[in-house]
Simulated scan of single mutants.
Amino acid sequence: MTDSLRRLAAYDRALYRTVARLSTPLLDEPLRRVSDFANFSKPWLIVGSALALLGGSRGRRAAVAGLTAVGATSLVVNQPLKKTTGVRRRPDRSGLGVPEQRWVRMPSSGSFPSGHSASAAAFAVAVGEFLPVLRSPLRVAASVVAFSRVYTGVHYPSDVLVGATVGALFGRLAARLALRRWPPPAE
């Protein structure tokens, strides 16, 4: 490992420890629930289904773009990326000071990058391109999911940052392809 990578890993652990030391017991239960609820992209499947059922043709197009982005992102992040980046071990929550009351089940897959963060960002970016009124709320929701993964101790901050970046790129790509297929009506 080069000096630069060692230094980045040290910053990553330091930021992880900083989050672990936050004295925010009121957030423990809500962020644990958010982290668990985001398993298998449940929030994005629910919102996508609601958009498809209730959002008219524009909502259906947004749902297709968002769920396509989630699917493509999940496939790439959870298969080749996690396998080719050299399986990064999950953080040692107890050794790095994450209080047990925050813990969720520790995934068995590698830590890098965060699939939860990738899927959340992919959906938020893709749907936000079709429905600008949802752009901010979905990005806030995606950020909460991403932060919850560090807060509960299952990811380092860089896992979440890279996951969100990959997801945002796939979200943008899915939206562009969908917009090319279904251009917005002329006003």
Rank of each mutant, 00 (worst) to 15 (best):
R102L: 12
V150G: 14
V104K: 06
P137F: 12
G171L: 02
L75K: 12
V145A: 03
A146K: 01
P184Q: 06
V144L: 13
S158F: 14
A120D: 11
P80Y: 11
V77H: 05
L75H: 12
A118Q: 02
A126F: 00
L173I: 06
S148K: 03
Q79S: 14
A168Y: 03
Q79H: 14
V150I: 15
T152Y: 10
E100W: 07
T152V: 15
G86C: 11
G167D: 03
G153R: 11
R60C: 05
V162Q: 01
T68C: 08
S111I: 09
G86S: 12
E100M: 12
R102P: 08
G153S: 12
V140I: 15
S114H: 12
R88W: 13
G171I: 06
F130P: 02
S119G: 15
M106V: 15
G95H: 06
Y151I: 10
G115A: 10
V154I: 11
D92P: 09
A146E: 02
G95I: 10
G110V: 12
F112W: 13
V160M: 00
N78E: 14
T85D: 04
T84F: 09
A124N: 04
V166C: 05
R61L: 01
R172L: 07
F147W: 09
V127W: 00
V98T: 15
S148Q: 04
A62Q: 00
P137K: 05
V140L: 14
A146P: 04
S148A: 13
A146S: 05
D92I: 11
A118G: 14
V144M: 03
L131I: 14
P107V: 07
S74F: 00
V154E: 02
V133F: 13
V145F: 07
A63F: 08
G167N: 02
L96F: 14
V166H: 00
V150H: 12
L67V: 14
A120T: 10
L81P: 06
A124F: 02
L138N: 01
P137Q: 08
Q79I: 12
D92E: 11
G153H: 09
P91I: 07
V144G: 03
S158V: 14
A72W: 10
V64A: 11
V87H: 15
A178W: 01
G171R: 02
P132K: 06
R149H: 08
E129V: 00
A174K: 00
P99T: 11
S108D: 14
M106N: 14
P107C: 10
V127I: 07
P99V: 07
V166P: 01
V140Q: 10
Y156W: 05
A141S: 06
T73N: 03
V166E: 04
A164P: 02
G110L: 10
G71I: 03
R139L: 15
R105A: 15
R60N: 03
L161D: 02
A164I: 04
S74I: 01
G97L: 13
R88M: 08
V125P: 00
L67K: 05
A69C: 01
T84K: 06
